[in-house]
């Protein structure tokens, strides 16, 4: 028996639909309808009254989870290092923000917290306060049994000093409450279509794809606690036009990944398009997983 993926959806997928054509109730019903079991949220996006939601909203959140048999997976937050124009954010203040998010995430039942950390360079090196910030928040993560997981996100590939510094932190501290979140956007191997009015000379290279070979997953798999299944467009012929799932799924299976694949649709924002796209992605990845498992079953 090989390890099975768990299937989830990030509410990020429904950006622009939520609050305009879709309610939280609609979104959760739709996630359950496609057979997924996990729901991922962004704290300062999907929690009314963030960071202090009304207790009645928290009750409703749990009632919705119950009704649709969903479990909370990952909770996204931000370390807003440019919060002040007059001075940089210090790690004590940043840790205060992160601790507040960990507490709120745990209150809502989440197991993973992804802080998106401010950067200090063109190649997205995180602000050096990240490490002291995490150290200061780690006790809360342990007490709340939450894993803090910064993301590996395009254009930063898997083999990169930023990823090395996170792995080094895990190895040095031996903590079980800090891990890696892998965003499948790094495997994009075909270009995104040009945006309206886009000038070819001004186009950032990463839009053509980070093209990380899926076998690089092996390098870091022991530290990967969560995967955001980033994608942009699955066409009517049932082909993902950017992410090579036919290579990514076998690589994840070979690595023994048994955690969540949480859909992050990041394509065109036309009303309701996101939902149909996420359903296509679940159908596609589930099919590839089934095909893979059948192919290795002993005769």
């Amino acid at each position: 028996m090989t390890a099975k993926f768990k299937y989830g959806v990030s509410l990020y997928s429904f950006t622009d639909d939520l609050n305009t054509v879709m309610t939280l109730e609609d979104a959760m019903a739709a996630i359950a309808d496609m057979g997924a079991t996990g729901v991922e949220i962004l704290g300062e996006a999907h929690i009314p009254g963030y960071p202090d939601p009304d207790p009645a909203w928290v009750d409703r959140w749990y009632a919705l989870l119950d009704r649709h048999a969903l479990e909370p997976t990952n909770y996204g937050c931000w370390i807003d290092t440019r919060l002040r124009l007059d001075r940089p954010l210090d790690s004590v203040t940043a840790a205060g923000h992160l601790v507040r998010d960990i507490d709120l995430a745990a209150r809502l039942g989440f197991k993973f917290v992804r802080p998106k950390i401010g950067v200090v360079s063109l190649d997205l090196v995180p602000d050096p306060i990240w490490e002291d910030t995490i150290v200061r928040a780690l006790e809360t993560a342990e007490r709340r049994d939450v894993v803090i997981c910064p993301e590996i996100h395009s254009p930063t590939p898997i083999r990169h000093p930023v990823v090395d510094s996170y792995v080094d932190f895990i190895q040095r501290t031996g903590t079980k409450h800090f891990g890696l979140l892998l965003d499948t956007g790094v495997f994009q191997d075909r270009p995104l279509p040009p945006q309206p009015g886009e000038h070819p000379a001004m186009r950032p290279g990463y839009l053509d794809g980070c093209k990380v070979p899926p076998e690089h997953i092996e390098d870091i798999i022991q530290y990967v606690v969560f995967i955001q299944a980033k994608f942009h467009n699955i066409n009517d012929q049932f082909v993902d036009e950017q992410i090579p799932w036919d290579k990514v799924v076998p690589a994840l299976k070979k690595a023994g990944y048994a955690g969540y694949l949480s859909s992050e649709y990041e394509g065109e924002r036309l009303p309701w398009r996101s939902l149909e796209q996420v359903r296509r992605q679940h159908a596609l990845i589930r099919k590839l997983e089934r095909d893979h498992d059948r192919s290795i079953r002993p005769a």
């Binding site: 990020y12 609050n19 962004l42 300062e44 996006a45 963030y50 807003d80 919060l83 002040r84 124009l85």
Partner: peptide, 12 residues
């Protein structure tokens, strides 16, 4: 409405 995927503090 805020054209972003997240809310944000006003200094941002």
């Amino acid at each position: 409405r805020l054209p972003n995927y997240r809310g944000q503090r006003l200094s941002l």
